[in-house]
């Protein structure tokens, strides 16, 4: 469990039940609020993701049991972006590097109805975040 009481399946089920954009945003904001906080040391330039209109940081933390698995965590000063980070965390955390590389995040985000945030030119930087996670897994 990488986000308090929430799995990717929970998010998928909840989104499937919501047809109102307002409710989806509210839920996304709620997810963002559940993100464990980053430390001051982690809020640094090298963890910042470029290409986002708001400030975005993404870091990895050691997996408690299995060192071949990665855990992602992040933060933003924008609520909706924080929610998107939470979704990414749920998609990728706990996976091995090859699993991360093989994960089709775009498809999952499309199923969640979040694909509109995905174009490279969208200023929320979801595209850049995905690239950063890919780079971290490939490093």
């Amino acid at each position: 469990m990488y986000l308090e009481n929430t799995s990717l399946e929970d998010v998928e089920e909840t989104f499937a039940l919501m047809d109102d954009w307002e409710d989806r945003y509210r839920y996304l904001i709620e997810l963002g609020r559940k993100l464990p906080p980053l430390s001051e040391d982690e809020h640094v330039e090298q963890n910042k993701v470029r290409g986002c209109a708001s400030q975005v940081w993404i870091v990895t933390r050691p997996h408690p049991e299995d060192s071949t698995r990665m855990v992602f965590i992040g933060d933003s000063d924008a609520h909706i972006v924080k929610g998107l980070i939470a979704v990414l965390l749920l998609i990728f955390s706990g996976k091995t590097r090859p699993e991360i590389t093989a994960t089709d995040a775009r498809k999952i985000l499309e199923q969640l109805g979040l694909a509109e945030h995905l174009s490279p030119m969208r200023t929320n930087g979801l595209f850049s975040m995905l690239q950063r996670i890919g780079d971290m897994a490939a490093a």
Binding site: W21, Y25, A53, S54, D77, A78, H79, I80, V81
Partner: peptide, 12 residues
């Protein structure tokens, strides 16, 4: 509330 958040809701 970040301006980006406001802008997203306003767009909707």
């Amino acid at each position: 509330i970040h301006p980006h958040d406001i802008g997203t809701i306003l767009d909707r």
